[in-house]
Write a protein that binds this DNA or RNA. Sequence first.
DNA 1: CAGTAAAAACATACTAGTAGGTACAATCTG
DNA 2: CAGATTGTACCTACTAGTATGTTTTTACTG
Lengths: 191, 191
Amino acid sequence: MNKSIEKLITTTQALLWERGYVGTSPRAIQDRAGVGQGSMYHHFRTKAELAQAAEERSAAELIEEVRALLDAPGDPLDRVLTYLRRERDVLKGCRIGRLAADPEVVADPALRKPLEHAFGWITERLAALLREAQDCGRLPQEWDAQSLAATVLAVIQGGYVLARAANSPAPFEQAIEGLIALLTNNATAED
Amino acid sequence: MNKSIEKLITTTQALLWERGYVGTSPRAIQDRAGVGQGSMYHHFRTKAELAQAAEERSAAELIEEVRALLDAPGDPLDRVLTYLRRERDVLKGCRIGRLAADPEVVADPALRKPLEHAFGWITERLAALLREAQDCGRLPQEWDAQSLAATVLAVIQGGYVLARAANSPAPFEQAIEGLIALLTNNATAED
DNA sequence: CAGTAAAAACATACTAGTAGGTACAATCTG
DNA sequence: CAGATTGTACCTACTAGTATGTTTTTACTG
């Protein structure tokens, strides 16, 4: 067990979430982690390398949380709705989506990969559930599950953006409710 | 006409879009604008003051562009769909939404206000059109137009996030197509 | 099992360059 | 020529490290 490495990664995760990649300085990481400069640069050669480790951890944690919700037993569409209504610290935003705003993250393949992986995984998992929902007759067969999955994830990510712009969770909640109305009151609802 | 003021504002608009508030330094603004430090600090007392002017300009421009699209003649729902399919430089993201990621912007009321104003205006305008669409019978009356408007805007903003994370416009386009399917293939479609 | 060698871990000092300004003199412009 | 504008110098603090020295572990030998 290396205590310093662990502390550096969790601290960097927190700072990346709060302030993004450009807004997070090595010094801020060291101070908050209570780890000296020499230590930090011993374990991680650059800020980017440490950020990458932190991103990978955050992506894995997010995937694990979403997997737990979406793998639950029950009706597939209901599980998607549960995921949509999941409790969130809305104004804090998404630990992964936040990083997509940083040009340095998007430009560096190593820094961008964890984002692509997390969002790719969630989209695929949602698409699979939505296809199940189509097979159950709860969604029209002619809809494209893959596109719909992207829509679901986009509403969440966009909801965060609107909420932070308004400094209020209300737009997030409205966006979610609007999507739920769209998903539950569709052409198959009258069967 | 003050040439320096104009150049400073348009340059800051561009830099805020590209790099956000934290990532934009006074020096970078001066260099790209070709304006000296003395000039800049003569016209704008702080970086925040200049950023605010740039944000207000960007918000006004965005509103004007959206207004032009949404005020066009024709069926209200079709106008929303046209807005959704509008051409965009997807990987560049939204000039306003990008700033919601910056904690310093969200924390400062003066810097946050233009975002709240722009998104508030667009949401209201969309909600009005969606209500019209309900009155035309193209959307179910029981849906809440305000929530739906938030959903539409969230899909766009979230689409940008997903696209940048994937370094590809594809997730954006999928999210839009999914939303269009939801909006056009609903319970009233069988009337 | 003591002793030691090597490596891993941590700390301190230093660096060139940038962030976000202030102070003030010089220069336009009406 | 007064007031608006601009250029230059300067400031303190921070960024992203490098360089170097000091402990602390671990691993092996006799």
